[in-house]
């Protein structure tokens, strides 16, 4: 019976029929999705912090409202994704508990510090650029609620990368000092952005199954290559140098070749030793704990009010 269900399930996937919350699904499919979606949601929420760090210091009011709206969008995206994950049977509080105890991961890019205003440009351009590469194919992922959340996310994300690139462009057209600031930001964010696509394909154990289930549609290396290919030209327009001496066009492959990734650094940050891991997690835990009395009071008031309204109806 079980095998039959799995076969039927795979057949639906192969026929591009979306899976919906109450449909039968293999336990491993559910778990894989739950891990991926919640991790994605956590990344949005933790991702608010490095950029949130510059909201109060944005250099002018136009930039301030754009950045504020962007970070707010990330909260919205976290919310859409938590909602999608909740359809798989885990509550948002349970997911947050996993984040706060360090059991759940989030994208390690957010464990790097934002040191100058140019980092707002570099994050929008590179980090959101890499995220979009990942996210666009996810709009067609096999699980309905995840795909729908991603459609909404992608629609809203489209201004994020433009916002970042515009910051970079303004800096690069500005003073020597501003251009140096932009180059420095590119230097610091380039490799972490490249690493955002995850381990190389031959080192990514869950990838094959995820591709079969059409949770993923492209491999880590395919997406990474695509990102490098489009970003090189964008850096040229800015007049900035990508910090990779091995970066060059390969006519035969029709792609750019690029240098070896420092996976030790990646693993080190994933293991919790990035420059801001502790700070980021602490900020999230603090917000949650300091908000406990607020959430509790709102629940208490809602219960009181419901009771009062019930009494009023009964009395009438």
């Amino acid at each position: 019976m079980e095998i039959n269900l799995e076969e039927q399930f795979q057949k639906r996937i192969d026929e591009e029929v979306k899976i919906e919350p109450r449909d039968w699904m293999p336990e491993k499919y559910r778990k894989t999705l739950l891990r991926q979606i919640s991790q994605h949601a956590h990344s949005e929420i933790v991702g608010m912090l490095p950029e949130g760090n510059w909201i109060t210091r944005a250099p002018n009011l136009r930039r301030k409202v754009a950045l504020l709206a962007k970070v707010q969008d990330e909260a919205g995206h976290g919310l859409y994704l938590y909602s999608a994950a909740e359809t798989l049977g885990m509550s948002r509080d349970e997911m947050l508990e996993e984040l706060h105890t360090g059991k759940a991961k989030y994208s390690s890019i957010f464990n790097y510090p934002t040191l100058t205003w140019a980092d707002m440009g570099a994050i929008g351009w590179l980090v959101d650029g890499a995220a979009i590469m990942n996210q666009v194919p996810l709009c067609r992922t096999s699980y309905g609620p995840y795909a729908r959340a991603m459609v909404r996310v992608c629609k809203e994300e489209s201004f994020h990368q433009r916002q970042g690139y515009e910051i970079m462009l303004t800096l690069c057209k500005g003073s020597e000092e501003q251009k140096a600031m932009a180059q420095d930001a590119l230097n610091r964010w380039w490799w972490p952005s490249i690493m955002m696509f995850g381990p190389n394909d031959d080192n990514s154990p869950n990838s094959a199954q995820s591709m079969k289930w059409k949770i993923k549609r492209f491999s880590n290396d395919e997406l990474r290559q695509k990102f490098v290919d489009v970003t090189v030209a964008q850096a040229e327009i800015l007049g900035l140098t990508i910090p990779d001496k091995d970066l060059k066009w390969n006519e035969a492959r029709g792609h750019y070749d690029f240098g070896a990734i420092n996976w030790d650094e990646f693993n080190n940050v994933v293991a919790g030793n990035g420059p801001c891991n502790k700070q980021r997690l602490k900020a999230r835990v603090d917000a949650w704990e300091k908000g406990a009395w607020v959430r509790e009071a709102a629940t208490a008031y809602a219960e009181k009010r419901a009771k009062r309204e019930k009494n009023k109806i009964e009395a009438a």
């Binding site: 929420i45 949130g52 970070v71 917000a287 959430r295």
Partner: peptide, 10 residues
């Protein structure tokens, strides 16, 4: 704006 990212609930 200082609250952004630190609110009691999303």
């Amino acid at each position: 704006a200082e609250w952004c990212g630190h609110g009691p609930v999303l």
